[in-house]
Design a binder for these strands. Sequence first.
DNA 1: CTGAAAGCGCTAACAT
DNA 2: ATGTTAGCGCTTTCAG
Lengths: 331, 331
Amino acid sequence: MATIRDVAKEAGLSTGTISKALSTPDKVSPKNLAKVEAAIKKLNYKPNMLSQKFRSKTSNTIVVLVPDIANLFFARVISGIETVAQKEGFSVLLGDTKDSIEREKEFVAMVETKLADGIINLRPYKAGDALLPRKDIISVSAGSCENTPGPVVRIDNVEAAQKVVSYLIGLGHKKIGVISGLEDNPHTKDRLKGYKLALEKAGIKFDPSIVVEGDFNYWSGLNATEVFARMAEPPTAIFCMNDQMAIAAMKGLKDKGFNVPEDISITGFDDMNVSRYCSPTLTTIAQPAQKIGEKSAELLFELLTDKNPAVTDYVLPYEFVIRESSAIPKN
Amino acid sequence: MATIRDVAKEAGLSTGTISKALSTPDKVSPKNLAKVEAAIKKLNYKPNMLSQKFRSKTSNTIVVLVPDIANLFFARVISGIETVAQKEGFSVLLGDTKDSIEREKEFVAMVETKLADGIINLRPYKAGDALLPRKDIISVSAGSCENTPGPVVRIDNVEAAQKVVSYLIGLGHKKIGVISGLEDNPHTKDRLKGYKLALEKAGIKFDPSIVVEGDFNYWSGLNATEVFARMAEPPTAIFCMNDQMAIAAMKGLKDKGFNVPEDISITGFDDMNVSRYCSPTLTTIAQPAQKIGEKSAELLFELLTDKNPAVTDYVLPYEFVIRESSAIPKN
DNA sequence: CTGAAAGCGCTAACAT
DNA sequence: ATGTTAGCGCTTTCAG
């Protein structure tokens, strides 16, 4: 493997000049530039980036902490992150934590040991979180919730949930069930808050017995329908806290003889690709996942180049998409 | 930032001893080990991994080349890769190429410049591919097709497709349409080959007019149904080359007044999570995506530690999952 | 078991 | 504009 010294020798120049020719070509005479180029080609020289990084003390790498990369929402956020990282000349190290705090720590250690310059955290912030943010580590929280400390890019989950539920109420629904995420999940809390706000505004009393806990996965949505189906008087609409549970719920209800939306309206949250292709198509909140990723990366890079950005808290707009799964109640 | 020299000074030892204490503690006296530990704690020393990597000339990093990370199949493969990479102490650099050859080259350059030790390529191999495999770069192709050169982990797409179509024929279908991927996509070719093989075996003549080209995305599945719906005598079954197109096709057919599977049977390929929760649930080939990722990573690590593995071509088992979307034809 | 010292490949003063 | 040189922080001989 040829080194910069070999190139210098071949070109009859010094290593310093080669280095400059590579980083700031306009500060090297055209004549020598040509020589350098020729030598590089001849020796098939490739700079050792490991050395470069070591020397320059900056890794040009960010790590993305993600609870589960096989979750489509996260994958879309990451896609956005990658787009701007590439533009900025950064690499992204994947930190699939599989929801383990231990693994999360390992990845945080990467910036402590210089392997990465900063972190984008896709796990929503939980009160009392021990890990991030930390003052000595530059990080951005992507897709998090209300009251997330530190730099954050997210949507207003409370408002979005409220909008959905108010819409259902506007259609005439009075008994609106919920399939939630795990009780202590931050998104669950935000979205439940919005749900309650909407009820309150309409003068409907909150009834905990029609809130069924899920875990954001398909099967839990299916599962929840068992509970609703057994009720003497099931709700006429169900607000599901994500699309996966909503789609599974539609399946479960159909299997039990309910029609969506005729008997029960269903709404989701996220807007996955499939949500406009399932039957019936799903009314939902479209989160700008890709945008959240892009904005997070942009914010992180601002932080990294310590421009001390004025804004470190971005609340992005979402869309409320009305499709076939929601309708006026029968009676 | 404390360096190893600071620790040495603090502990009253040499840097060599500190280094050894960190890498091979059993070769350092317990007494000094304690001193080292104390010094490290006191100074809050974190080894500079950039330096370590530079010195040891190995990055302990692999890059995963992926055409589109927001594609669930790829995301699942990556999840598998991550699992074993973490176990082996490797980091994974995400190479979302967004289908651009230029970007692909940039990522390949990372191993040329020592930033990464090897590559796992999720883009299926196309005949005449200029990029990978290369003799000077260690790489594994994951989820690729027949005749892929170099180390590869995949399923037998031809056989799987044949199995699906033979099953449909067995049910009594004689006119079986196809929604394919792009014509020059390697997966399209393999699966079409399997389709033809099944027809041939049953003595059914191949009819290109009922093969509609899609692109593996939802909308193209929906789109294709327009063509089928306009036919005087539409097929009684459609073999879709992935689940996304299959789900969209079911939607499209339903909207046009067809019932699945009563009027038309639909089959998919991949087995996404949603495929068992849509209505009707989808008959499909379950690709072991996570496994493909794990095996690819294992193979790459073998290659990296040049054990010169006996097997470098893994054809993994898949499952054929029969669900509600396929049935005996009406007439 | 421990210390001394060389050097990985590159960059960045500094001098010319 | 170019060359010289001193390291970056760590590992790894080689002696002792």
